[in-house]
Design a protein around this nucleic acid. Structure first.
Lengths: 396, 396
DNA sequence: AAGCCTTTGTCCTGTGAGTGGAGAAAGTGG
DNA sequence: CCACTTTCTCCACTCACAGGACAAAGGCTT
């Protein structure tokens, strides 16, 4: 089953592979422009990579006024699997070595059913993608899970919303099943890596990536590297106190951000509003769908329902207050908002921006874009593919 | 005037210098144990360093059962100047290459008088230290200022409490005056570097260093490196909102942490308490000293005054709430509390600990020490010396 | 005191990494 | 057909580094 037999033998080769992956170059000459190596040394390393099969030279590019260059690219048959496990659904995608998505499946799922059931589903989705001819096998897989991960071992630790996953050897188990190397990380970190690789955060070294879905979390990128913290729980901002003596939270405290704003909280607030007779629009949707979700609130807001807009604005304000504190603390160059609730769009963004620009110091906000993520639901799987690709494209 | 003529020629030499500086080794053999080099290569690099004069070999160590080793150490005549500019006082110290303090002066000062006046004072303090025979000249200087710094250029930017310093070329000006290389950083970052080098944070890669003085700030160390943020304002937690609709702050907002707890806020609260007749102890001190400072509150608390204790506890609670949020976000391995108010000691620490351990998630706090800084008022100057030494002990 | 062991430090040679120049290969444009 | 550009290869030389042999200098045992 294992397909990718070789790994780069040194830092030069790793650098070259990443340049090819990230579209920085596609010929020997272009590679030479970006790495500080003599042409001779470059030729040696390229030849060695060609021998390993990690890259291929096929065809000639058009001339630019002189001898035509060989097209150098990553092996076209390399395939990475990106898996993004959420609280209530799972994304599985196949990418090529350039991390372009070749196929993507999304299915509803419940993490609470535990790792065994979830992985059964993930594996069948992967099999389906493979059966459709997108891949003969996988050279590596990246997995995102909605909770803290002991990163070096790839094991979730004390995940609040994933009972039954605590200590489960995700990396090892999936590596066995898939027959390829696997890396595991928090889903929010992967979203950040996705946006850094192919989204709005391209070429930004220090940024925050706030993911608002069923829960709420924050990917932290410092100096181009994801900051995971000493126990892998960095970015867990859902339980920062947003409202003194506020709503009770599942964690036992009161006033946690997540208790006041998240997909779950929003749905609950919408139901409450309906029961208090504050919104006909939402009431109608509740009757039609037999319940309310964050998406319903988004739709109602889009339809102009003032109560829905109020709910979103208030949540955005709460979130914005917390983010304002983080901006003062971390001084990022960009804040990305993503996750399931991005459907709430500009109402949400406006509320967040207002709070951040008002509460943080001018020096920190002066040139600070706060934007929605560009990749939407694919950020996670792209980040996952990036994670394993970074690993495999590093010297063994 | 310039004395240190050489810089390490490569990464090996830099590594060796830092090992010698940090007490990791003092002979060729011990160096060899810590760097992954053959004895021959090591000998070459050591010889080259000896030639440059950056290190010296003098005398023989006692035998450990075989041939005696040469004592290898950093040039004994190297001198670094560490300067820590606070809001109301300035510390200047001379260290040797191992960053041991050979002489230390502290004088009252007012940053608001501007860079020219302040540097005149700093230079005269440095001259005094030199005149006392501690140094013939300086090989480098590190400067800490109480505000954001554009680090690569060594220029303060938009510092709230330092009008007149905005954009002043501190690095260049002092380098001219002192005739040696100079590095400039935020004072809080330098405190963190000091504690990392010689204090409680030795061998901790990810920690927060909260400095509570006239203002309040936080040094952030991630992966052993200080995180300064994109505009150098990272760690500026004094203006995070701690109390919704709380006290007005000089920054224009309300409820900033700094408005509720800091040396200045504590003194103001103490005066208020006296005027409301809530503390005889503080009233007596006010009459005796003609005013109140944070130190008076500390003394009153030490004498058992309940009002003073309450003030400290409440401030500690506010600070603890903010730190709790930062701990959830950053997931550090250690939190260091330092700055002028460390005199408030365990009352303060207990309040902070209570809030953090209660509000942050168990995974983040489970093994999280929260301790007072070990170096007290010398943390800043040691950090400053460390800053310039790191610079000079890196390949040019 | 002799002999043996340990530790420290030096010397020398072989290997491989890497540079830089010469020049071949393959194209364009006049 | 010639001059010029770009791409790529080949080769000789330098330098970094490892690793072994060996010298220096001590301690311990007998």
């Amino acid at each position: 089953m294992r397909r990718m037999t070789a790994r780069p033998a040194n830092a030069h080769q790793a650098r070259l592979l990443k340049l090819l992956r990230d579209g920085g170059a596609n010929s020997r000459a272009q590679l030479g422009d970006q790495v500080d190596l003599s042409r001779s040394k470059l030729a040696v390393e390229v030849d060695r990579l060609l021998e390993t099969g990690l890259i291929v030279a096929d065809g000639l590019a058009a001339s630019r006024g002189g001898r035509r260059s060989h097209n150098i690219r990553l092996a076209p048959n390399l395939r990475f699997l990106g898996v993004d496990i959420g609280a209530t659904s799972v994304d599985v995608a196949v990418t090529n070595a350039e991390l372009e998505i070749l196929g993507h499946l999304n299915q509803p799922m419940d993490v609470r059913e535990g790792p065994v059931a979830v992985f059964e589903q993930v594996l069948s989705m992967a099999a389906k993608l493979r059966a459709s001819g997108l891949a003969e096998g996988f050279d590596g897989a990246g997995i995102g899970v909605p909770g803290p991960v002991r990163f070096p071992e790839g094991v979730p630790v004390a995940p609040p919303i994933m009972p039954g996953w605590d200590g489960f050897p995700v990396r090892e188990a999936l590596s066995q099943e898939l027959g390829c190397p696997v890396m595991v990380d928090n889903d929010v970190n992967l979203m950040a890596m996705g946006e850094m690789h192919a989204g709005v955060a391209r070429s930004v070294g220090d940024f925050l990536c706030v993911k608002i879905g069923t829960g709420i979390g924050c990917g932290i990128v410092a100096g181009g590297e994801v900051h995971r913290g000493v126990t892998g729980s960095a970015g867990d901002i859902g339980h920062i106190q947003a409202v003194p003596d506020g709503r009770p939270c599942a964690c036992g405290n009161r006033g946690c951000l997540e208790a006041h704003f998240s997909g779950a909280a929003l749905a609950r607030d919408a139901v409450e509003a309906v029961e208090q007779g504050r919104s006909e629009e939402l009431a109608a949707r509740r009757t039609a769908n037999g319940g309310l979700t964050a998406a319903d609130v988004a739709a109602a807001a889009a339809a102009g329902d003032p109560t829905a807009l109020d709910l979103i604005r208030e949540g955005g304000n709460r979130t914005g207050q917390v983010i304002a504190g983080l901006v003062s603390f971390f001084n990022p160059g960009l804040v990305v908002i993503g996750g399931g609730v991005t459907g709430l769009g500009h109402t949400l963004l406006a509320a967040i921006r207002t709070q951040v620009y008002r509460q943080s110091l001018p020096l920190a906000t002066g040139n600070l874009p706060i934007v929605l993520g560009e990749l939407g639901p694919t950020a996670g799987v792209i980040g996952a593919a990036r994670l394993i690709s970074d690993h495999l494209f590093s010297p063994a």
